[in-house]
Design a protein around this nucleic acid. Structure first.
Lengths: 235, 235
DNA sequence: GTTGTCTGGTCCACTTATCGGACCACTTGG
DNA sequence: CCAAGTGGTCCGATAAGTGGACCAGACAAC
């Protein structure tokens, strides 16, 4: 008789292994690989993911059809330049959904990340702080060379989450990355004005290094507002 | 060469439909059903979840083995009293993990829910507010009768999340519920001193009704601290 | 060059989980 | 008592994944 939650059930769908594999490879590309890089070999992937090579191949075929990746017999499979097409193609209606999702994601980040930064300020170990420093320096160097690649922003925020020493937070972030992936939302992160973003990161890290929770929270809040402004102006 | 994130891959596992079904039924029991209630019939569940009856039966057999549910030929499947055993049995080492998870979950809630309450205060529609009021009154009534059942606390918090009008937040909460489910953490929510919990809810709702974001945030923060104290004392 | 060992490309027999349907045994309410 | 609805059981069909074999192209070491 109670009736607070909508339809109590979600339709159950069997997950296809090759879809799951595709997700993970895509995530790897987003996080670590540049266009031109080689993917691990199919046999290697099969072993890492504990899955048959056939499934790996199915997944790669999918990524190939999406234009993300190019298998070359004998040589390996390389990451392709992300063509503007691959972002525009998938139908206009996906675009609307994407816009909504992006704005909701930003809302969520605005809620979660400031307290998260505060916690990082009080909990981060010296090692974790140097890790952040390293990431930030790498970005700054790249940016100085005019080389603003994707996925770096994510890396910095992820390192803050790591310092929270809370597996629940990490789990949630992984889910969010999946959401991003699902809507082909690759460009959220850096594009726009990377220098502004980097300055924000720099302020956050500085507060964390001082173990100043309030300052970290504020810096993160302002940083997200900046990002928000940049991203939303793109629509 | 970048190396901020640990092992880049998770082992891919094919999800078994009956496991997924078991999750959903378990969640239904947690959210809506009391001991003694009848589950929907197997054929009905099969239709709702778009899954064959065999899968439903496999799932129910699992729940039966866990002592959660008791199928009676001809009559239906009823929800059993949750025996203390079913919480103690599953090995001691699970208990430690559980303790960690609970404390991490509370941390996470402390980060997310205050800003969430603030947002609810500014965004909630009259309908959503009356929904919260209704839930709260039902709980207060039950509590007056000394009938503190599980899953009510969740319901109130969920209604706040609904008012946020943000699908990302809902998605995240669903994940958290899955986490709870996975560690058999049923008792987190109400047990302890329900009256204190209810008073907290009352204060939160009142702030939301006044559209006072700051007050809502503060009330939620204090409420979670209270819950934290109660729960952690149980270990 | 030649060779050995990588790589991806292809095929196929085998296993497994799920489906979908049939039929039975039992309970319940009219 | 009986019709309708429930869980209990069984089984053939289907789809996905597995694991292995073999091929052809690439590429580095010799």
């Amino acid at each position: 008789m109670p009736t607070a939650i909508k339809s109590d059930f979600e339709v159950v769908r069997r997950n296809k292994v090759y879809e799951e594999v595709a997700k993970q490879i895509e995530r790897l590309i987003l996080k670590k690989l540049k266009p031109g890089d080689k993917l691990p070999s199919e046999r290697e992937l099969a072993e890492l993911l504990r899955v048959s090579r056939s499934s790996i191949r199915d997944a790669i075929r999918g990524l190939e059809l999406m234009g993300l990746v190019e298998p070359r017999q004998g040589a390996g499979t390389i990451v392709r330049e992300i063509s503007p097409d691959s972002l525009v193609n998938p139908f206009a209606h996906a675009l609307k959904r994407r816009q909504e999702l992006v704005s909701e994601l930003l809302d969520f980040r605005r809620m979660l990340e400031p307290p998260l930064a505060a916690r990082a300020a009080t909990h981060a170990s010296p090692d974790e702080i140097s890790e952040m420093e390293e990431i930030l320096q790498r970005q700054e160097k790249k940016q100085a060379q005019g080389d603003a690649s994707v996925g770096e922003d994510t890396e910095f925020h992820y390192s803050i989450a790591l310092a929270s020493d809370n597996s629940v937070v990490l789990k949630v972030l992984d889910i969010l990355m999946d959401l991003l992936r699902d809507t082909r939302e690759r460009s959220l992160q850096v594009e726009g004005r990377p220098q502004k973003s980097l300055a924000g990161h720099r302020r956050i890290l500085s507060a964390i290094r001082r173990h100043d929770a309030e300052a970290a929270k504020d810096a993160m809040r302002r940083h997200i507002e900046d990002v928000e402004e940049i991203v939303l102006n793109k629509f």
